[in-house]
Design a binder for these strands. Structure first.
Length: 754
DNA sequence: TATATAGTGTTTTTT
DNA sequence: ACACTATATA
C-alpha cells in the first residue's frame, strides 16, 4: 500500500472513503487524479472490491487512458476489468448491447456535428421553411440544448410561445425521425438514449447497477443534466458515488454543463461527505496567487483559497505588442531561445488562446523559426473532406441505412451521377420510406433515371464487392486500401498533383495507420467498433505522449494539462473575454470566461506569461483592443510588465479607462469591426476616448521610396508607386509583379528594399 | 453535368 | 479571411 503514503491527509481521507456519496472539491493542481487512482487501487487491494464493479468516468479518452495506465501500475493485471471511459463511450458501449429495445439497430452509426447539420438542412427544406431564418447552426444548438435538458420534441412544442419556436420543435421532430431512419445517433442521443433505456427497461438498469457498485466521476463541474440523470440512475441502488470537481473550473456551460450539479450535490445526495483539496502541488506561489486574484472576482462560487508550499518563483509576466504578428514572434522567439540556449525541451511549453483562429500566426512563426509544434483541435482531423469520404464508404458498407453516408459518396469520386439524379433518388426513397441504398438496388424502378442506370449499377456492385470483402475477414486497413484503389479515389488525388492533394493523401495515410493501430490494440476489432471509436475521439486525444514539441491549443483544450511554461495569448478585451460574452453584458458569461482564464493560468507550473496585441486582424478586418480586464484584475505589484514599462503601463491604464465606460467600448468595437473606412477617418480627426492609447509605432523614416523595388512576405516583389504620410503611419501603395496593386501600412507590411 | 465566378454570411469554446 | 451558396456558362 505504499502508494497511499504519497498522499496528504485530505487526499488520503478521500481515497479511503469508499462507501457512500462523496464530493471531492479539488482545486487546480491538487492531485485529484492521483487520489482517484489510489482510491481505485485501495478499493481493489484493501477492501476486496471486484475490479469489474468499478466505473470511472473521465472527461476525455486521453484522461481515461492515463488513468487506466496508472491503475495498471498500481494494481496490476486486474485493472483491465475496471471500466474507465468517457460518458459518451460508456453509453455507446451500453447501447451497442441493448439499443434494439428502443427500436434502433445495434449497428447504429454516430453522427458528428456536420452530419447533424446536413440532416437539419434537409429537414428545413422539407418543411419549406426559410433557411435564412432557420439556420442549421442555431437550430442544432437549440436541439442540443433541449436534449441536454432531456426535453423531447413534444416538450419543446409545449414550451414554445413564438411561431419560430413551434417550427423549431417541428424541425426537431423531423430531425429525430430522420436519425432513426438512418439508424444514427448524435452525440447527445448517446446519453439521452441510455437514460431512456434505463428508464424503460428496469431489468437492464438493474444489471448495470449491480455491475457498477462503485462509481467515480471526474470533472463533475462539467456534467450536464442528462449526464447527471444517468449518474443518478446508476448510483441510486448502492449510492457509492464519488464525484470530483471544482466549480471554479466549470467552462462548458455552453454545451449544457450545469454548475448546479456541483453546487447542489449535497442536497441531491443527503449525508454525503465533502472533502476539500486545497493544497496545490503544481504551480509556484506567484502563479497561484495571481490566479487566485483573478478568480476571486467571481461572485457565485464556493469560497476557497488554494495554497502551496512551492517556491515563490518568477512573477507572472505581461507583455503587449502592436499586432498579433509581433506577439507571435515574441512567444515563438522566446521559446526557440530558451530551448536552444537553456536546453529546455519544447514539450515544456504551451501556447494557449481563446479561439482556434488565433493559432495561425503562431503556427507560421513556428514554421519559420523551426520550432516543432502540434496544434490541438482546429479543423478536426475527422471532419476533413477526404477522411469523411472514406469513412462514408466504411459506414455504407457497415450500415446501409445511413442515407447521409450513401448520398455523400454516390458521386465521389465523380462517376457521372449528378444532382438531378441524386434528387430523384432521394425523393423516391422519401416517398416510399425506403433507405437510399435500398432504392439504388432497384434503380430501374425510378422514373426518369434513364442514362444514369448503368452508373448506379456499377456503384452498387462496387459496394457489394466491398461488403463481401469485409465479411471475408479483411482488416479495416485492407478494406480502406481497397476502397482507395478500387474507387479511383487515390488515383484522382494523385493526378491532381497539387500541395493540397498531397496533404489529403497524407491524411488518408494517417487514417490507415490509425486503423492498423486500432486493429493491433482493440480487444475485438470490428468495422463498427472502429467507426464508433473514430466518432468519439476528442482533439486532445490525438496528442502524442512524449513527443518533444510545443503545444498550441485553445484554453478549453488545455483543461487537465500542465506545463512548465504557459503563454496565454490574446489577452485583450473582446478577444478574451470574447466579444460574445462582453456584448451580452451578462455577468454569468463573463464569469465563465473568468473561470476559463483561471483554468489557463493554473496550467502553469513555473512560468506564466500573458500577452496581448493592440491591433489584430479579425475576419479580415482590423480591430483595436485594450488589455483584458483579467490582466487588470491581477494587482500591478504581482505583475512583471516589462522593462519598457511606459508602453505596458499606458496600455493597462487605457484599458482601465475603458472598462469604466462600457458603452464606449462597444462603440469602438463597432467602429472597428463594421464600418472600417468611416471609422478610420473618424479616428484621424477625433480620436475616441481611449483611442490615443493605441499608438502604432510609426517608423521615423522609410528605407524605401517611390519607384524602389520592395519585397513583401506574402505578395512577393513589386514597385512602390505611392507613399502617403498618414497621421499614425505611412500608407504605402505597391504594384506587385504577381499580386497586383496593394495598399498597406508600412509598420505592418514589413517591406524589404530589394 | 461540371466548373467558374460572384455574392453571402460567419465562428467562442466541444463530446 | 474564409467557406459556402447560387448562378452563369461550357
Amino acid at each position: 500500500m505504499d502508494f497511499m503514503e504519497k498522499l496528504n491527509m485530505q487526499q488520503r481521507e478521500a481515497a479511503e472513503q469508499t462507501e457512500g456519496p462523496l464530493l471531492i472539491l479539488a482545486g487546480a493542481g491538487s492531485g485529484k487524479t492521483r487520489v482517484l487512482t489510489c482510491r481505485i487501487a485501495y478499493m481493489i487491494q484493501k477492501c476486496g472490491v471486484a475490479p469489474w464493479n468499478i466505473l470511472a468516468i473521465t472527461f476525455t479518452n486521453k484522461a481515461a487512458g492515463e488513468m487506466r495506465d496508472r491503475v495498471n501500475a498500481a494494481v496490476g493485471r486486474y485493472a483491465g476489468q475496471v471500466w474507465v471511459s468517457t460518458f459518451h463511450s460508456a453509453c455507446c458501449r451500453i447501447l451497442r448491447q441493448h439499443i434494439d429495445r428502443l427500436g434502433y439497430d445495434r449497428s447504429f452509426t454516430i453522427y458528428d456535428t456536420d452530419d447533424s447539420r446536413q440532416v437539419i438542412k434537409e429537414a428545413v427544406r422539407q418543411l419549406e421553411l426559410d433557411p435564412k431564418v432557420y439556420k442549421e447552426r442555431s437550430i442544432l444548438a437549440r436541439i442540443s440544448a433541449a436534449k441536454n435538458e432531456m426535453i423531447d420534441p413534444d416538450g419543446m412544442e409545449a414550451d414554445a410561445k413564438r411561431w419560430e419556436e413551434k417550427k423549431t420543435a417541428e424541425i426537431y421532430a423531423l430531425y429525430q425521425r430522420r436519425l432513426k431512419q438512418n439508424n444514427a445517433l448524435d452525440f447527445d442521443d448517446l446519453l439521452l438514449k441510455t437514460v431512456e433505456l434505463f428508464q424503460s427497461e428496469p431489468e437492464v438498469l438493474l444489471s448495470y447497477q449491480e455491475r457498477f457498485r462503485y462509481i467515480m466521476i471526474d470533472e463533475y463541474q462539467d456534467t450536464n443534466t442528462v449526464q447527471f440523470a444517468l449518474v443518478r440512475l446508476l448510483a441510486s441502488r448502492y449510492r457509492n458515488l464519488c464525484v470530483v470537481g471544482d466549480d471554479d473550473q466549470s467552462i462548458y456551460k455552453f454545451r449544457g454543463a450545469n454548475i448546479r450539479n456541483i453546487l447542489s450535490f449535497e442536497k441531491e445526495f443527503p449525508g454525503c461527505r465533502v472533502i476539500r483539496l486545497e493544497q496545490n502541488y503544481r504551480s509556484t506561489e506567484n502563479v497561484l496567487q495571481a490566479a487566485n486574484e483573478v478568480i476571486s472576482h467571481n461572485q457565485g462560487r464556493k469560497k476557497k483559497t488554494l495554497w502551496t508550499e512551492n517556491e515563490k518563483g518568477d512573477p507572472v509576466r505581461f507583455r503587449q505588442f502592436p499586432t498579433g504578428y509581433e506577439e507571435a514572434e515574441f512567444v515563438v522567439g522566446e521559446i526557440a531561445e530558451l530551448s536552444r540556449i537553456r536546453q529546455k525541451p519544447y514539450s515544456d511549453f504551451a501556447v494557449l488562446y481563446r479561439t482556434n483562429a488565433q493559432s495561425r500566426l503562431f503556427e507560421e512563426k513556428c514554421i519559420s523559426a523551426d520550432v516543432p509544434y502540434q496544434i490541438v483541435g482546429g479543423v478536426n482531423f475527422y471532419s476533413r473532406k477526404e477522411i469523411k469520404d472514406i469513412l462514408a464508404y466504411l459506414k455504407t458498407i457497415d450500415n446501409g441505412s445511413d442515407d447521409l453516408a450513401v448520398t455523400r459518396i454516390l458521386n465521389v469520386p465523380k462517376r457521372g451521377i449528378g444532382q438531378t439524379t441524386i434528387g430523384r433518388i432521394t425523393q423516391y426513397a422519401g416517398e416510399r420510406e425506403m433507405s437510399v441504398y435500398a432504392v439504388l438496388l432497384e434503380a430501374d424502378e425510378i422514373p426518369g433515371i434513364g442514362r444514369s442506370l448503368p452508373k448506379i449499377r456499377s456503384f452498387t456492385s462496387l459496394i457489394s464487392r466491398f461488403r463481401a470483402a469485409s465479411a471475408d475477414y479483411l482488416s479495416v486497413r485492407q478494406l480502406m486500401e481497397m476502397i482507395l484503389k478500387d474507387t479511383g479515389y487515390q488515383e484522382e488525388l494523385e493526378a491532381e498533383d497539387t500541395d493540397e492533394a498531397r496533404a489529403r493523401i497524407e491524411n488518408l495515410e494517417e487514417l490507415i495507420s490509425k486503423a492498423s493501430d486500432y486493429e493491433n490494440t482493440a480487444e475485438d476489432p470490428s468495422l463498427s467498433d472502429f467507426l464508433q471509436q473514430v466518432s468519439l475521439v476528442a482533439d486532445i486525444d490525438n496528442v502524442e505522449e512524449g513527443a518533444d514539441r510545443v503545444l498550441l491549443m485553445t484554453l478549453h483544450a488545455a483543461k487537465g494539462l500542465e506545463f512548465d511554461s504557459v503563454y496565454m495569448t490574446g489577452m485583450e478585451e473582446n478577444t478574451f473575454p470574447s466579444y460574445m460574452s462582453v456584448g451580452t453584458g451578462s455577468d454569468e458569461e463573463i464569469e465563465e470566461e473568468r473561470r476559463l482564464c483561471y483554468v489557463g493560468m493554473t496550467r502553469a507550473q513555473k512560468h506564466l506569461t500573458l500577452t496581448a496585441a493592440q491591433m489584430r486582424m479579425v475576419r479580415g478586418e482590423t480591430h483595436f483592443h485594450t488589455a483584458s480586464r483579467f490582466v487588470n484584475e491581477i494587482p500591478r505589484k504581482m505583475l512583471d510588465i516589462g522593462r519598457d514599462t511606459s508602453d505596458s503601463r499606458r496600455f493597462l491604464a487605457g484599458s482601465r479607462d475603458y472598462a469604466a465606460s462600457p458603452a464606449d467600448s462597444r462603440d469602438l468595437f463597432r467602429a472597428g469591426s463594421h464600418d472600417t473606412a468611416a471609422a478610420q477617418t473618424l479616428r484621424k480627426k477625433t480620436p475616441l476616448q481611449g483611442m490615443r492609447e493605441f499608438k502604432v509605432t510609426k517608423a521615423e523614416a522609410l528605407d524605401y521610396a517611390v519607384g524602389d523595388r520592395v519585397r513583401h512576405i506574402k505578395f512577393g516583389s513589386g514597385v512602390v508607386t505611392a507613399i502617403q504620410d498618414g497621421a499614425r503611419d505611412y500608407e504605402v501603395t505597391v504594384l506587385f509583379d504577381k499580386a497586383g496593386v496593394k495598399r498597406m501600412f508600412a509598420s505592418f507590411a514589413k517591406l524589404q528594399k530589394e
